[in-house]
Nucleic acid binder design. Structure first.
Lengths: 231, 231
DNA sequence: GCGCAGGCAAACGTCGGATGTCTTTATAGT
DNA sequence: ACTATAAAGACATCCGACGTTTGCCTGCGC
């Protein structure tokens, strides 16, 4: 293969080299096609690929622009990739989270502001109030961890962990938690993390986060073992 | 937007649900187009996106197949994403590596076999022999860290760290190292990590890896500070 | 019976043009 | 000054055609 993939590589290269900075508008498709020596169809495929990677932003009726190239955009694809991983590799993802999330939580303990803590406390309350609603639990759980990691100020780290904690993965864990009557315990684990963060205790935050991820991993194992041959 | 993106989502959904397991052959483009209610052009764009994400494997003259969905494939996109990150976010990447790589190296200390250690020793020798060749240094450096992390047996972790240590990033660091006459010291850091691994000392391996990442980060800062307004 | 060369068919790769639809912007009118 | 309308620009989609590659079947020769 050559033409279309060449075009992808060429456009990407122009962006990486700084020739096409964020916000730049690309030439119209026909002109771009002529410029790169292939048909408009090929250009469209190339642009579509880069658009799906959040490198380009195509605005119908307007034009095609280079995105901000912010980590939150470029690393977004990690989420969809994780969603497609096979069951047997989800434990690998959990092992990565086991390494990364405690470190991130520990770091958050050092950088967290009072406002952040208040927001976190609110989420914790919401979580407790939604102890019966699996859907809401997942939502608040996601918000809790996202908020914690986001306070590190490291957008790359945040996007990475967001992607590793895909919705499907979280849903499976919480299904196991609820069916195993462990939801309450897990909510309390969040409380423990919260207390450590409020105390600005890095090591304690790190440890409590590790325990929490470990619980999730254990229940994921349970869920995966329950239906090993299912679709 | 709808048609093409719908097609992307639909195919991805069929794969995620298990309706299209790895290795499955998709219907020919015209048939797929009819089945999903859009033109062949639209199908081609959708397939191209999924091919770029290593979800589909298009073989000219043959057909389109679902890949193995292995982490090494699906997480490959992380590398190209990191390559496109702006300079000011590369430090964020380094901070993530600072958290992840020591943990991974520590884990490797527990799981590494004698054969792995011998391979690592060989790479170390190669690195020392290539102390003048920046290109080779980068190559051996990449091989060293890849080998270490790979011995954890966690393909997801390996792919993630590979992606975070993009070629461009490594090249910049080594350029700084060489120009700053710090290449030798850095090679010795690898030796220190190697010794810790050979001793199967998890904590020592972790600590030496952290020091090493820290050195890289420091030199990256130097390089970035040297030319902040360059293209 | 086995193997190799040739040809046939299927499938993707690329192209060109035509038409629909949306956005933006300029314009004209109040 | 503001609004509504019109026009132009750009992407979205479709269609049909042709080239190229691959896989496979066939038939010949050994």
């Amino acid at each position: 293969m050559a033409l279309t993939d060449d075009a992808i590589a060429r456009i990407r290269s122009m962006i990486q080299s700084g020739e096409l900075p964020p916000g730049t508008r690309l030439p119209p498709e026909p002109q771009l096609a002529a410029q790169m020596g292939l048909s408009r169809s090929g250009v469209r495929e190339a642009v579509k690929v880069l658009e799906s990677a959040r490198v380009l932003d195509v605005r119908r009726g307007d034009g095609t622009y280079v995105t901000s190239l912010a980590p939150r955009l470029l690393l977004q694809g990690l989420g969809v990739a994780v969603e497609l991983l096979r069951d047997d590799t989800l434990l690998e993802v959990m092992e990565v989270r086991r390494m990364l999330e405690p470190m991130a939580t520990g770091l958050a303990a050092l950088r967290m502001t009072d406002a952040d803590l208040d927001e976190l406390g609110q989420i914790l309350e919401d979580m407790r109030a939604a102890a019966d609603d699996a859907e809401k639990l997942i939502q608040f759980d996601t918000a809790f961890h996202h908020t914690v990691v986001a306070t590190t100020g490291n957008e790359t780290l945040t996007s990475l962990l967001d992607g590793l904690s895909g919705r499907t993965l979280r849903a499976r864990v919480w299904r196991g938690l609820i069916e195993g009557n462990a939801a309450h315990q897990t909510i309390e684990e969040h409380h423990t993390i919260y207390l450590a963060l409020r105390a600005r205790d890095q090591l304690l935050a790190q440890a409590s986060a590790l325990l929490h991820v470990n619980t999730s991993e254990a229940w994921l194992r349970t869920v995966l073992a329950a239906k090993p041959t299912d679709g």
